[in-house]
Amino acid sequence: MSLMTEITIFVLAVFVGFEVISKVPTTLHTPLMSQTNAIHGIVMLGGLIVLGFADDGLEYAIGTIAVAFGAINIVGGFMVTDRMLGMFSKKPKPKASSDGKGGA
């Protein structure tokens, strides 16, 4: 890919990013941050590529740590976001439904 193609992609992504993310309400900003942490875990791909060409001890170590760091971001980020969003999507009236069951 030429540098100019990459810059084109970058600039378009800036506009898309601002457009989409500015619509996320304040209520969801914390899950947004943990989700972007998870998406940032994409750097794990770099770690995998490093391990692909690594041929000395230091590069093995660097690559393995980078993969581990990326995996922390991906797994931890998506899981904790899921946990938080679960709190927002709880049924609004759990009491009413259990009362209903009790009555029936």
Binding site: M1, E6, A13, V14, G17, I39, H40, L45, G46, I49
Partner: peptide
């Protein structure tokens, strides 16, 4: 930036999304 270095379009776009989000916040 790592995406530019590795010629990886997924890194460029994902990194930029995260960068936009952090900047807006």
């Amino acid at each position: 930036a790592a995406g530019f270095a590795l010629d990886n379009v997924a890194l460029i776009v994902a990194g930029t999304l995260v960068g936009s989000s952090g900047t807006i916040l």
